[in-house]
Simulated scan of single mutants.
Amino acid sequence: MVSLRMPSLRERRDDIPLLAMHFLRQFAAQAHRPMVGFSERALGVLLGCDWPGNIRQLENSVERAVVLARGAEIEPRDLPRELMSKMRGDDSAPVIRARRCGDRALRDPADARARRRQHEQGRENPRDLAA
């Protein structure tokens, strides 16, 4: 018998942007909505939450945001209010900053990978990436 331990979402914060984009594309397609991604502030809310409901809570939150979004980009006002109260208040917790992709915090992950390769090769404007 093999025992596998799957870490919780709060232990895999680097996965949050990729999972959020996956769910965004999935629900936007189902709703026939032309969604492009998350604003920097909305991504900050997602990264700041402890996700006690794990991936299922993230999935439900993104689905709700897609339905309620007023534009093509998810904003904090589109996310469930309870996420604000579940954000980490611990100042000792590590801060994760989102990479910027152009003028937006997160769009398609393929864009982010391409921009990272360009940056590594010295062909990208360094101010486009957050430290």
Rank of each mutant, 00 (worst) to 15 (best):
L106S: 07
L79D: 08
D103L: 05
M87W: 05
L83R: 07
D128Y: 02
R100E: 04
E82D: 14
R99Q: 10
D78E: 12
R117E: 11
A105F: 02
R81T: 15
P94Y: 05
A72K: 14
L79P: 12
V62N: 01
R107K: 14
P80D: 09
E59F: 04
R127P: 00
D90G: 00
E73W: 00
L58W: 03
K86Q: 15
D111E: 14
P109T: 04
C101N: 04
I96E: 00
R104Y: 13
H119N: 04
D103Q: 08
A65K: 02
R99E: 09
R123E: 04
R117S: 11
V62S: 01
P76W: 13
I74F: 13
P94Q: 07
L68Q: 11
L58M: 09
D78G: 14
L79H: 09
N125Q: 01
D128N: 02
D128R: 03
C101T: 10
D111M: 08
R116P: 00
A114F: 07
A110H: 09
E124I: 01
G102C: 06
A65D: 02
R117D: 12
E120D: 12
A69K: 06
I96G: 00
I96L: 07
R116D: 07
R70Y: 05
L58A: 05
D128M: 03
R117M: 11
R88F: 00
S92E: 08
R88N: 15
I55R: 14
A93H: 02
D108Q: 05
K86T: 04
P80V: 10
I74K: 08
P109I: 06
Q118F: 07
D90I: 01
R81V: 15
R104G: 03
N60M: 08
E59Y: 04
I74E: 09
E73Q: 15
L68D: 04
D111W: 07
M84H: 12
R56G: 10
R115Y: 10
E59R: 14
A65G: 03
L79M: 12
H119C: 02
E120L: 13
S61R: 03
A93V: 05
D91I: 07
Q57V: 13
V66F: 05
I55W: 06
R104L: 15
R115F: 14
M84A: 14
Q57K: 12
D91L: 13
R99S: 12
N54C: 08
M84R: 15
K86C: 08
M84T: 11
V62A: 01
D128W: 03
R116I: 09
S92H: 02
Q121A: 13
R113Q: 13
E73G: 00
R88T: 14
I74M: 10
